[in-house]
Design a protein around this nucleic acid. Structure first.
Length: 132
RNA sequence: GUGGCAGUCUGUUCUAUCGCUCUAUGGAAAUCAUAGGGAGGAAAGUCCGGGCAACACAGAGCGCCGUACUUCCUAACGGGAAGGUACAUGGGCAACCAGGUAACAGAGAGUGCCACAGAAAAUAACCUCCAUAGAGCGAGUAUGAGUUAAAUCAUUCCUGCAAAAUGGGAAGGGUGAAAACGUGGGGUAAGAGCCUACGACGGUAAAAGGUGACUUUUACCGGGGGUAAACCUUACGGGUUGAAAGACCAAAUAUACCGGGAGCAAUUCACAAGCAUUCAGGUGUUUGUGGGUAAUAAGGGCUGCUCGCCCGAUCCCGGGGGGUAGGUCGUUAGAGUAUAAUGGUAACAUUAUGCCCAGAUAAAUGAUAGAACACGACAGAACCCGGCUUAUAGGACUGCCACCUAU
RNA sequence: UGUCCGAUGGUGUAACUGGUAACAUUACUGUCUCUGGAUCAGUCGAGUCUAGGUUCGAGCCCUAGUCGGACAA
């Protein structure tokens, strides 16, 4: 099941309170132009990760540009998340992740994909550091 | 055919793979399967109007806010349609025509303001003008005084200039954004719509046309501005707040209240106060404080368990209301839309037939690969409609005007 | 989603009912000093966020837009 490339409702982070906890208590690191916030918490759903994506209104005034950027990030995450899923299933943990885009320019899909792959690798490293 | 102006419509398409969301069907159910739907003309700005919802509300007035040529359309509007008037533009010799623009009621109700300049910026009167008046100045004639003769002085008369003052008058005065109807004639001391003719403007009345704004004609009247996008007057309209409105369901924790169960500690001394008995004392009784003796209680906290320590008069069980997290509704079938007919100049209305066309809730339309051409503008629904305003690559159509070509 | 404010020299603020956009500071020049600072004297620097309108004349009044901020969970 984890090998499928879906990104349904339960895979997205939706609970308002959980989001609040994530941003107030979670660990964070920066891979420019993305800020990543994560925390290892038990989840209700069957999936090991619940993720959320945000693009600030300051970086893009136009709603259309904001939407496209967010959709590109989501798409890149959807296609490349399997590595992270497998790692977490092995370790039997679950976590919440938040992606925040801080850049000022609209990136192409290829650029975003490269960065997201980087971030997903970095996440496993960060988890190991934190768990020691 | 080209260009300009005005208006209306349109707003990339196709294939494959991987995804998102909603609905229907199947299924015990699912993160499953199948089928279908899935942003705009402005979804934007939030500038108006309405629906919907909650609250408020006898009725009337004041205040506040908004609107302002007419008639119509509409659920309603500050929107639209058709007209009227004014203005500038283009065409035309002109009458007029064309499209455009207008916050287009009232300054003959009141208050305020009008810098600088200018005589004066609003119930005007500085200069000039005219009449009366003549301080005073100058020339001359005559007479007298004076002198050798003059000069000079005095008086009288005439004439010229003329200050102050009183009055008339509003024509002229280099300014200014704006200056008190224009021209001719009369009139006058000087002048003046003071009178008159023609003309312009405004008002009233009548007639004709028009639903009306208004237009045309005739008669009479009038003669001190502008500004209401300054206050204001008149007429008409407006209760307030917005889906984070509002309605319903409802964990966990605490708990008003109700029911059931368990528990709720005895005695004595001293002191103080109140009451009773006739003031005091004494006595009796009630309450409070302190001390002694006896008895130690359910339950709770610390802990893996025991002991121990602490809290301790309330504790346990059940019901229960309000209500938090969360969820459902509100929420998308409607002042809907397409076609046709009828009525109307038109906006629009009525009728008939067909259609169902986003509904998310940290928030759905994307990515990759390929193909086509004009190489894709502005731009993303969040309760829903009707408008307005603003942004917009390219394309199509209609009307008017100009130019060119052909007939 | 809704409501309400603001925008003036490089910076911070004025301009009362429309009438020549003012002050402080910064910068520059001079004075003073051996030099610098401070002091003192002077100069430069805006046409008022943008575009229209009303008016004889708009920073001010009206309309539309741009940007910034505050409030309501």
């Amino acid at each position: 099941m984890s090998t499928t490339l879906t990104l349904g409702k339960d895979e997205r982070l939706k609970h308002r309170k959980v989001i609040g906890q994530l941003f107030s208590k979670g660990h964070s690191f920066l891979v420019y132009p993305y800020k990543v916030v994560w925390s290892a918490t038990p989840l209700v759903s069957d999936f090991p990760v619940q993720a959320m994506f945000a693009v600030t209104k300051k970086s893009f005034k136009s709603a259309v540009k904001r939407n496209t950027m967010r959709r590109r990030i989501k798409e890149a995450y959807r296609l490349n998340k399997t590595g992270l899923y497998n790692y977490l299933i092995e370790k039997n943990i679950s976590m919440t992740v938040g992606f925040v885009y801080l850049g000022q320019d609209l990136n192409t899909y290829k650029d975003t994909e490269v960065k997201i792959i980087l971030i997903l690798r970095r996440l496993t490293e960060e988890y190991e550091k934190a768990s020691r």
